[in-house]
Structure formats: C-alpha cells, structure tokens
Simulated assay, not measured.
Amino acid sequence: FSDGILPNEEVIDQLIGTPQELLFTVLHADEYQEFERIDLNQRWLGMVSLNASRLTAMIDVPDDWEVGSALLRTAVQADCPRAIISDRRMGGGAIAHVQSEISAGQFTRQKLKEMPAKRDNFLNRFLLRPLTKRGLPKLWKQASASKYLGIFTIFTGASAVLAAAFAYPIISLILLFLGSIAQFVRGMMVEFFSDVKLRDWPGLTLDFLATTGIAVLLVQASNAATLVPNLVIFATLLGHLLLSRKGTENGRLALATPDLRLFLLILILAAGFGQISYGLYAAALYSGLFLVLERYLEKKSPEETALEDG
C-alpha cells in the first residue's frame, strides 16, 4: 500500500508464502521514523498480505476513508499475524524506502554494488562491467533505452554482414564487437526487470549475424585447400562457445571464460595483420584449452582442490 516500498526477493518470497495474512513491521526506533507507527512497539513497513474478505469490513467505515489506511487499521484491530524484520535484515537491504531523489540514488548505488559478477571473463569484469555500471543510472532514467540498445545491436550486426560481403573485415568485426558491447549493456540494464527472463531476441539475432558475417569473411580469406578446414575449425569454435556458456558460475577459471566479445577482439587483432584465419586458429585453441582445463578441475576431488588452494 505504501509508495516507494521496495522489498528484496527474500521478503517477497515471505510475502507470498504462508500464512495467507501477514503484516510486515519493524521494532520502533529513531531510524525508522519514516514508517507509520501502529502501536507502542512497532512500525508498519508498508506491506501487508490480507484475505479479500477483509474488504467486507469497509462497509462499516465512514465515507471519508482511504483504502490503504482503512485496511491496515482493520488488520491491526483483528490481530493479523506480523512478521518483524530485524535490524540486521533492514541493514542488509531487506526494505528500501524510496521517497526522494537522494534515497533513489542511494537505492540505485546499493543495487549496482550488489549486482552479481556472474560468469565474467577478465574483459567483462575489469573493463566493460565497471564502465557499464557508471552509465546504468542514466540509462535507467530513459524508458526506451533498453529497446534502442536492442535495435542498435541488430543494426550493427546487419551492417557487419553487409561490410563482410563487400570484403571489409576489420570494419565488419568492429561493428560486431560494438553490437556485442551494446547487448552486454542491455543485459545488465534489464537484470532487475521482469523481461530479463524472456527470450533474448536481440542477443540471438546478433549471434546469428555474427556467425554469418565471420563465415563470409572466412570464405573470402580461404583458398580451395583451406576453405573446408577453416569452416570445420569455425564450427568447432562455435561448439566451444556453446559449451562454455553452460559452465558453472564463478568457477576457478571464470576470468578466462571465452565469449563472443573476446573472440571478436582476437579476430580484430588478427585481421589487422591481414591474417584472420590465424585469429580463428588462436580462438579455437584458446577455447579448447579452456574447456579441457575446466573439465579437469571439475573432476578433481574436493580434497585435492582444498590442498592446492591451501
């Protein structure tokens, strides 16, 4: 009922769980004065789960009433079960009360600080993710930013395929690299939105366009003797990418995880020397070694891993 109340996932799970009726409160203290006091010892945190039958009590309330406060009053009078959020949980960000630009900024900074690193390699973790975090507060203020980033991702991918068709390898690879960065930013931007769980069509489209563009470049850079081997190695590289995406989160080799941006960077460097095929070989070798080492570490016993770490 209260405006600006933003609970974390733990509180939301508690809210939709049992019992069906639950009034969220905090013990009375000076630091919680922005919350409404409901008795001598507790303040209401702006959230309550009630049975719809409570609405029948509104019949006996005078005409001049507000739904939220009236329902709260009937719940308190009926001794509705309460869930007291401890000071420790409040300090950990269980409830955020956003009432002003200052509190909104504090909430945003806290969310950015808590944003998980996930399965980031060194390029994402030390360069792209820190830079993106700085720009996210401004992007979140633009309602259409996510849509425009998705459009930019598809546009750069299509332009890259066109550039590859006209035999401009460096331009094509740079466009794909920029598109993948835009998709990375978009993925971080919607990380706390509900649509993050939906199918990522811009990302899937970029993957298809990147595969097409690089395949065109390989055909142009190959002769009759090297075309088939290059395409086989390229297919192997694509398989490595798919397997690396299914790896464990925060593994011991997380910083070395291969992804599209890292491989595009390798291909750009190789194309700069006019040897895009060598970049393909280096990328395939890198991804293959990564998968072998990752599988080897996964098969090792916990005791061996603990001894090495110790």
Rank of each mutant, 00 (worst) to 15 (best):
96 A>Y: 03
100 S>V: 04
100 S>G: 04
101 E>T: 05
102 I>D: 10
104 A>M: 06
104 A>V: 01
104 A>L: 14
105 G>M: 02
106 Q>C: 00
107 F>N: 13
107 F>M: 08
109 R>W: 06
110 Q>I: 01
112 L>M: 03
113 K>A: 13
113 K>Q: 15
115 M>S: 14
115 M>G: 07
117 A>E: 15
117 A>H: 13
117 A>I: 14
118 K>H: 10
118 K>T: 08
118 K>N: 13
119 R>I: 11
120 D>F: 13
120 D>W: 11
125 R>A: 10
125 R>S: 09
125 R>Q: 12
127 L>C: 11
127 L>E: 04
128 L>Y: 06
131 L>Q: 05
133 K>E: 13
134 R>P: 00
136 L>V: 04
137 P>L: 04
137 P>V: 02
140 W>V: 06
143 A>N: 05
143 A>E: 12
146 S>Y: 07
146 S>T: 03
146 S>K: 06
148 Y>G: 01
148 Y>Q: 10
151 I>V: 13
151 I>P: 00
154 I>T: 04
154 I>A: 07
154 I>D: 00
156 T>V: 06
158 A>I: 12
159 S>G: 09
160 A>M: 12
161 V>E: 09
162 L>D: 06
162 L>P: 00
164 A>V: 05
165 A>S: 14
165 A>R: 09
166 F>V: 13
167 A>S: 14
169 P>D: 04
170 I>W: 12
171 I>C: 09
172 S>D: 14
174 I>S: 14
174 I>C: 13
175 L>M: 12
177 F>A: 15
178 L>A: 15
179 G>N: 03
182 A>H: 05
182 A>L: 06
183 Q>H: 14
183 Q>W: 04
184 F>G: 07
185 V>E: 05
188 M>F: 11
189 M>T: 07
190 V>N: 01
191 E>D: 13
